[in-house]
Amino acid sequence: MRLALCFCAVLVSSLKFADAQASVEGRVELPKTRSAPLMTKRYEVVTTGGVLGINPPLAVVYLDGSFPKPASLPTKQVAQKDLAFVPTLLPVQVGTKVEFPNLEKDTYHNIFSYSPAKRFDLGRYRPDEKPVPSQIFDVAGLVTLRCDIHEHMRGLILVLGTPHFVTTDDSGHFRLSGLPSGHYTLKAWVDSRTTREQAVDLKSGSNIHVDFPATP
């Protein structure tokens, strides 16, 4: 009897998986490359040479809607390396725990956010600090990450109510797979002031193409 129940459970989940095979791909037209960051060194008596890397703009594409919340979510990371956030843009589902490891050689960081979706200040922490400082992002919205020591550092965490999201590549291309069938709104978050959207009709096994051109 127990074996039969297990078999049924596997069958049902296989059917659900088969049902969730819709996918969307396309391209988001990204804004022009942002300005390169500049580190302020006026009152640092000793400074190192070199320039900071330029991070190209990216977008996050996500399927808007109401979806069941999973029992557990994987822990994500936003590291600090070479005086920058890695990655600079991280989409997560509501309830996700994000760790902030300091991967520098010998530099303090002090990550904080004053965004309404999450206010926190991790204080100053070393590269080898254990446990790794972390926060749980339990409200949907955009969280801007900053460092109290390095004024130029900026990072973003986009907290979403959906489990279906993906970050584009540098040229704006994306592929979002494993989607449930149904009628939804597909959104492309471009920056704090720009989110584009299109209605999509997803059918089991379908692969549709959606582009998000810049609004004229």
Partner: peptide, 24 residues
Amino acid sequence: AQDFLDRVDEALTFTTLNGDVRAR
């Protein structure tokens, strides 16, 4: 106001195309 000042911050940062010269 925070969003506005963030945008001012971005607008007042200048760079050449290859990023060799940056000013803020």
